[in-house]
Computed example of a mutant assay.
Amino acid sequence: MIDVSDVRSADERIDGRIRRTPVLAAGPGLWFKLEHLQHAGSFKTRGMLNRIVDPPAAGIVAASGGNAGLAAAYAARELGAAAEVFLPVTAPAVKVAKLGELGARVVLEGGEYAEAYAAATVRAAQTGALFCHAYDDSAMVAGNGTIGLELLSQVPGGFDTVLVAVGGGGLLGGMVASLRGDARIVAVEPVTSSAFHAAQRAGHPVDVPVSGVAADALGARRIGDIAFELARDVPSVLVEDDAIVDARRRLWDDYRIVVEHGTAAAYAALLSKTYQPEPGERVVVLLCGANTDPADLTTARAHRPDSLQPS
Rank of each mutant, 00 (worst) to 15 (best):
V284I: 12
Y255V: 09
T299Q: 13
Y74N: 04
E150K: 15
V106F: 10
H303L: 09
V166T: 05
Q309M: 06
P88F: 07
S42R: 02
R282H: 11
G69Y: 01
V188F: 03
E229Q: 12
L218Q: 02
A120T: 09
E260R: 01
V96G: 03
D54V: 12
V186K: 03
G262C: 07
A75Q: 01
L152Q: 14
G174T: 08
A83I: 06
M175Q: 09
V122K: 14
G181H: 14
V61I: 14
A247H: 01
P279C: 07
L271W: 02
G128P: 09
G29D: 08
G148E: 02
A57K: 13
G41V: 03
L171A: 11
T45S: 15
G66Y: 03
V283E: 04
N291C: 11
T161Q: 10
A26V: 11
G158F: 08
L230I: 10
Q126S: 15
D253M: 12
D11H: 10
R250P: 01
V213M: 10
A290L: 09
G224V: 06
G224T: 03
A26K: 06
F32Y: 11
A68G: 07
A58D: 07
P190A: 15
E115M: 12
D296I: 03
A134C: 13
I244P: 02
A57T: 13
T298R: 14
Q38C: 12
G29Y: 03
H36T: 11
V107L: 11
P156D: 12
R17K: 06
A104Y: 03
A202D: 13
R123H: 15
D254E: 13
G148T: 07
V206M: 12
F131Q: 07
K33E: 08
G173S: 13
A183T: 07
A124S: 14
A118V: 14
L30D: 07
P156T: 09
A265P: 04
P277L: 07
G111H: 14
A119Y: 05
I226T: 08
V89S: 13
D242W: 02
L70G: 01
G289L: 03
P305L: 06
P279L: 05
A10H: 00
S194A: 14
Y135T: 01
Q200V: 14
A214N: 03
A214P: 04
D160R: 10
A247K: 00
V239K: 04
G27W: 04
L179W: 00
Q38S: 10
P22R: 12
V107N: 09
R250Y: 06
A264K: 02
V141M: 08
W252E: 07
R248Y: 05
L172I: 08
G41P: 01
R19Q: 10
V155A: 15
F196W: 01
V188G: 02
I147T: 15
R77W: 11
I223Q: 03
